[in-house]
């Protein structure tokens, strides 16, 4: 055990958690907008600062967190146990939060969708993408969006639109998605309808 495990968290936990939350709230209330999420965290690789910012803002011992296997290194799990104290050994379909680094292999199925009676008991999926712009354009519509808005995140899997349509069709059940990169976040709540640029 060394200082790497203890360092790198919030310098000002109360204010930074509030900033982080407002970014996430604005991101999910206004899908497609890019909200700043640079909170100066230095987690051990391969956990990215943005993924860490979401976890430190929202998670504690009440929330089961599922880590993509490649992310669950000893350094990362030790760091998270110290900073958020969440159970990290939960099954994929039991997790309240799921954290993924390899966005190309993102599979939305297998997470908790909640139930018809309690659709809030679903997994929030947090995915680090290579960048929030520069990829193929996606057109978003739905609550939080006045007409439509375009995003172009890099690194989403080829069948992302089909996967998302399947998720959207389960409403009110479904997962909510947070895409993070470059100190910023885009929120895609389950209500958002996504189509390709030409569709």
């Amino acid at each position: 055990m060394d200082n790497l495990m203890l360092d790198g968290g919030f310098a000002d936990p109360v204010m930074q958690a509030q900033q982080g939350f407002r970014a996430l709230m604005d991101a999910l209330a206004n899908p497609g907008t890019i909200q700043q999420l640079a909170l100066g965290l230095t987690p051990p690789a391969p956990l990215t600062p943005e993924l860490a910012a979401v976890l430190l803002t929202l998670c504690d011992h009440d929330t089961g967190v599922w880590l993509e296997p490649d992310l669950a290194t000893e350094a990362v799990t030790g760091w998270l146990r110290f900073h958020i104290g969440s159970p990290l050994n939960v099954a994929r379909d039991q997790a309240q939060f799921a954290v993924l680094r390899d966005s190309n292999t993102l599979q939305l199925n297998g997470f908790s969708l909640g139930t018809d009676i309690y659709p809030d008991r679903s997994t929030t999926v947090i995915v680090a993408v290579p960048a929030l712009s520069g990829g193929d354009a996606l057109v978003l519509k739905g609550p939080g969006i006045e007409h439509s808005v375009e995003i172009s995140p890099l690194g989403l899997p080829g069948d992302f639109l089909e996967q998302w349509a399947e998720n959207r069709a389960q409403f009110p059940r479904g997962v909510d998605l947070l895409l993070v990169a470059d100190g910023a976040v885009i929120g895609l709540p389950r209500t958002t309808r996504i189509s390709g640029k030409d569709a």
């Binding site: 996430l24 709230m25 999910l28 809030d120 929030t124 939080g144 909510d176 709540p189 209500t191």
Partner: peptide
């Protein structure tokens, strides 16, 4: 609050 926003 985040769940509430996701399920209007």
């Amino acid at each position: 609050i985040l769940k509430a926003i996701a399920i209007p």
